Simulated scan of single mutants.
Amino acid sequence: MKITLDELQTLIAVVDTGSITAASAQLAQTVSATSRSLSRLEEKLETTLLRRTTRRLHLTEEGSEFLLQARSIIHSVDQAEEQMAARRNRPAGRLRVDAATPFMLHVIVPLLDGFSTRYPEVQLELNSNEGVTDLLEKRTDVAFRIGTLKDSTLHARPVGVSRLRILASPSYLERYGSPSKPSELAQHRLLGFTQPESLNDWPLHDAQGNVVHIEPSTASSSGETLSQMALAGMGIVCLSDFMTHEHRRSGALIELFADTKLDVRQPINAVYYRNTALAARIVCFVDYVIAALKNKPFR
């Protein structure tokens, strides 16, 4: 029979991406090569693993059972490679990293070149999600989360903290004026989040001493989108320093209520499952991020 690892990886890639075309891109090969590899595997097994329609692929019952074995085999090979690399003090293997888009763009991406130079045998796979993702479901090794953690099954390593600030562009302030007290925010265009609602609690106290909760004029699930809107003069926003410190330094965004705002700092953690055998590649990546961010201005 002589099934190859490439054929197993092809099956896994097709299932995970949902199409032969997407799997081909992930595997860096042609669509025809991916299709042939899948067909060879089915011929060797003398069974149909996937039913193909014009819109999607469906695993057969035999395909579902075989996929579990295929994943187990690939995982075992990855572990064996990693153990040998660890003996040489050279972390290796695929590392799947998840973070919200702003943190990925402003914090993680600038560090990747240096990390890859130091650890060339670690293959990074980056995914961005605005909400909290299931690490097991998304097959994620380590995720960076901002704010208070709620999942007690996760192990967390503190990466840093980032202050919240209320900001607007010079063009917005020139056009609409600058609010001098929290009650005046109601007369302004406010940019906020669709969810969770807690992100629309701004670091200010109202006249009664309560934390100010804003009703956004325009809302988005993405902090990066809100940042770009604020830069375009579309309203006042409350965002974390890790994604705005360069804009504040250049004067593209101006801080409001600097003397009266509350000192609210969001914790940033690297998280992974407690029952995960902590791979060398996870340790080296988290250590690298923590060391690189040690003296960042948003800490």
Rank of each mutant, 00 (worst) to 15 (best):
S220V: 07
V283Y: 04
L262D: 11
S64K: 15
C284A: 13
A33T: 15
E174L: 14
A13T: 03
S183I: 02
D151T: 08
I290C: 01
I73C: 05
P216V: 03
S128H: 09
M229R: 15
F242L: 02
L191E: 04
V161I: 12
D241A: 15
L50W: 06
E82L: 07
A232M: 14
S24K: 00
Y288T: 00
P216D: 04
N210W: 06
S76Q: 13
L226G: 10
E184I: 02
T60M: 06
S128R: 09
S250W: 08
A277K: 12
V15D: 09
E224N: 14
A80R: 10
A156W: 07
G114M: 02
T4L: 13
V14F: 05
V107I: 12
P196R: 05
F66T: 04
V97N: 00
Q187T: 09
L262S: 08
S221T: 15
H58L: 12
K44N: 04
A156T: 05
T244E: 01
G63L: 01
V14P: 02
P297E: 00
S183Q: 05
F115T: 06
E65N: 09
S72N: 12
T54N: 10
I236L: 04
A232G: 13
F242N: 01
T48I: 12
R189P: 00
M1L: 14
K138M: 14
E246A: 12
V122Q: 04
I166P: 01
L67D: 05
S221Y: 14
